[in-house]
Design a binder for these strands. Structure first.
Lengths: 133, 133
DNA sequence: GTAGATGCAAACTTTTTGCAGACTG
DNA sequence: CAGTCTGCAAAAAGTTTGCATCTAC
């Protein structure tokens, strides 16, 4: 199954969940847990939605995550991941355009922001490190 | 096991394989197939090597891949990785400082450039894509 | 009515864990 | 010799597949 032809409750539910959590990245597991649909259906549907471009798949962490894609418009965020606490931060800042432009122009390298993750230490962890260690 | 204390044949072999293929990214499966060591050992050793910074782990494709990190010690550049051909580019440009400064100031996030990999398409692959499809 | 979607369960892939025995320093 | 590392096999986690049944159009 690579193209969806029928609208079903399961598909609606999955899409709805993603749409209502557009700011978050959900794992397949989370989606399975929140939706009345078998895992096979969840995977098949997600796979189709990604192919359709309605949903984006990220490989940032341990397990892939899925996120509703606002028609590929202004969801211009890049992922920051804290090496300390593992938190994934969605940075919605316009610096990403600058970043893409730089690598495009000066390095002839077309950045794929959906795959890119910037690792580092988040403010909270930096603080507690400053205190404790 | 998080730190390696003894030198063993298995570790040597794994490191040697990675060192001799520094331009390539190897999956755990490939390493298992090329080395006289059980898979548990391969995973444990790779995990330790990554923690030590000797080897980098990439999440670009279906399965994570491992690559020898030539500059384990001095991290004065950031890594660009082509999702297409797998090439790892060491970008020594001063934009990195800009990048770090931005995330530090505007996001309170201290970038760790040794772990960060920017994914995208390199100039050569972009070219051949333009020609072929 | 029919092509397409679902759910279950089983298979598959990748990675982790437990433990007895072997090895390093 | 003691603390580590290894290999096996079993388990866990994530994902895919086969097939009979059900559903959207």
């Amino acid at each position: 199954m690579s193209e969806i032809k029928y609208n079903t409750k399961q598909r609606e539910e999955i899409l709805s969940l993603l749409r209502n959590n557009r700011t978050r990245c959900l794992t397949a597991r989370e989606i399975c847990g929140s939706v009345k649909a078998g895992e096979a259906t969840v995977f098949r549907t997600l796979s189709a939605l990604v192919k359709e471009g309605v949903v984006s798949k990220f490989l940032s962490g341990d397990a892939p995550t899925y996120q509703f894609n606002e028609c590929g418009t202004h969801h211009e965020h890049i992922h920051l991941k804290c090496s300390e606490c593992g938190k994934l931060i969605h940075s919605d800042c316009s610096f990403i355009e600058e970043l893409e432009e730089h690598f495009e122009k000066d390095h002839n390298f077309r950045v794929d922001r959906s795959k890119t993750v910037i690792y580092g230490i988040c403010s909270e962890c930096a603080e507690s490190e400053g205190k404790n260690g």
